[in-house]
Amino acid sequence: MSMSRPKTKRLNRSLGGDLLLTFVLSLMAIVMVLPFVYAVVNAFKPLEEFYLFPPKFYVINPTPENFLDLLTLTNNLWVPFTRYLFNSLYLATLTTVISVVVGSTTAYVLAKKNFHGKNFWMSMITTSMLFTSSILGIPQYVILSKLGWVDTHWAIIAPVVGSTMGVFLMKQFMEGVPDAIIESARIDGAGDLRICWTIVMPMVKPAWITLGFLAFQSGWANSGSNLIYTENLKLLPTILAQISASGMARAGVGAAATLLMMLPPIVTFVATQSRIIETMASSGIKD
């Protein structure tokens, strides 16, 4: 057990190298953070500042006007705004749980069980990931409509259950779990579901936390606009796009909506990343 042992001493470090690295990283960080800055600045810009020359990367007279306008517009909707918000939150949460549960269970079988057809399914999954996702669009729609799932939330959920990304990610991590641990749990009388959830999952915590975040991010951004037509089933991105897509006068409202859409993934990201860090201390449980 190396629970609290400090990391081995750092090899070959020089002050000059560290400084150079810090400089390069800072420079990159500035370029990477541009869309954040731009989204925040734009959300607080009064309308006239959107069309200034030369354009500004900062705001002269910050105003909450855009958010108030957004509120007014959303209050005038036929279906209450909270309905769309609820739909998106509920589906994002549900698909996140599904991704992690289905992905991990399947990955456990593929990584740690012996069964007929294992290699076949594994190479099938890998190969199908190499197709462009756009190829799925039309046939998927046809199948969903044959099943009667178009215009229901099943149209959003079904593709997530069959998604290969989580399975592949989890399988890659679970392969590193020593077989000896699983064997000894089996001798102690644990079944496969139990081994998967109480033995293997804690050991690959960074993986499922990352998967959970990615699933939430894509669930939250999913607009489902070509699959769902009934007003009170629609998702938040659809409705925000609809509100802000009404000409130049709505530029500010659009910017406010963009910023609000970015917030939940950012909060989730910070929460999950700190979780990944926590697991570092417990990774000594291996062997």
Partner: peptide
């Protein structure tokens, strides 16, 4: 046991990914 545990994924995978491909 293996196919049982994989069944939700496999079913939707065949319908939503393999059939379209």
């Amino acid at each position: 046991v293996s196919y049982g545990m994989m069944s939700p994924f496999l079913l939707m995978y065949l319908l939503m990914v393999i059939a379209p491909i």
